[in-house]
Design a protein around this nucleic acid. Sequence first.
DNA 1: CGACCGATTGACT
DNA 2: GTCAATCGGTCGG
Length: 211
Amino acid sequence: MVLKPAALPITLNKLPREFYLRPTLNVARDLLGMYLVRIVRGKPVAGMIVETEGYIGETDPASHSYRGKTLRNEVMFRNGGFLYVYFTYGMHFCCNVVTEEEGKGRAVLIRALQPVAGIEVMQNNRRQLLEPKPQQTLTNGPAKLCEALDIKRAQNGTDLLGNDIFIVWGGPIPRRSIVQTTRIGIKVAAEKEWRYYIKGNAFVSKTIKPE
DNA sequence: CGACCGATTGACT
DNA sequence: GTCAATCGGTCGG
């Protein structure tokens, strides 16, 4: 697996607010190929987004925002471009990009990254300092990538137009290289094809359905 | 309150 | 393939 060079066009190509203020599934699809960047002690820890899922607010039984705004999901109801981080299974964090206008409660779950920069930091955070497949399992799942990028409770509500966590232009991925299929790990609305990933990418999380 | 369980992961049969 | 870990959100009484 060949990785992209560590040099990143940090602030110049940061996605604008307008990118996030669009229909959630368009944002989910268009995030593929973009770079999620976390600045840790002045240095970028980053990966290319290779898998996403849309959660469509109060019309989506699988969404945390299905039953309206609460203390936990308050960030989901902000306008697009904020980071919604939630804690689950008593030990894991997962992160979402809030979409559309304020009050919608919609977001895109980032399910997998391909490591690009700060890989040693990721390995430290993931406690994966040894081989054999060092980078393969570093960020190929929503909780894994949060651990690798040190995204936790304190990062909930981060504005992606700030300088701590943001997303920069890296696309677009050709439409023929994008797979749209059903979401993973949910028991309701399981038939909705609101998951997107880059076809053939080795960092996509464990998949059940064929391409 | 108490019980249940989750947008997961890693270890194990 | 199965299952435990581990805890806070949610819901029923």
